[in-house]
Amino acid sequence: MIRILHIAAKDLKEEFRTKQMLNSMVLFSLLVIVVFSITFAPILGSSQDVAMVAPGVLWIAFIFAGSIGLSRSFVAELENGCLEGLKLCPIGRSSIYTGKMMANMVLMLLVEIITVPLFAIMFNFSITGLFWLGIIIFLGTVGFVCVGTLLSALTVNTRTREILLPVLLLPLVLPALIPAVMATGSILMGASYGDISQELRLLLVYDVVFFLVAQLVFEYVIQD
């Protein structure tokens, strides 16, 4: 439906005008990489060792930057009661969810596109298997954003949303995080598609299941 795209486009237009969220996400991701780079300074020479810690470092950067962005995803909708205005429009509740989710997806991918080369530079690491790495990151991010967008709407009206969101989000994305980290590790060690097919399949299952469930329950989240 075209209106989903309009919602996503509206969100991105707002975001690129102020760049509030994007800036803090990129900055945070950068800080994570720098801190880890300092911590792991002794092993930076050995690409074998770096490949061991890389998946953890990358996904921690993505997830923390992501939860910062997501916790603000519905804040703009609360100003001036916009969410209510949106709910008055003749569109399905799930379209609102899908539109917001797509916008968050674009922001996350942008952060990731900046973070990965930065990681390669700071860790003095040449990345192999870029194509499959991209697929893994994409599928992992879809799962993360699917649940994250829903929980962002769920926590936006609570007193402690910035803290509450990661507390709720991390246990739920664990099943996507584990295969994503595993597959990232395998690919960076030079594995091929055959070695990570199971992980990719699991990620795909997670993405589809949570996307569909989120569509079903979103209306209860924004109801009042």
Partner: peptide, 11 residues
């Protein structure tokens, strides 16, 4: 039309 304007500040 409400006391909330339903308008996005950054647009």
């Amino acid at each position: 039309i409400s006391h909330e304007t339903y308008l996005y500040n950054d647009l």
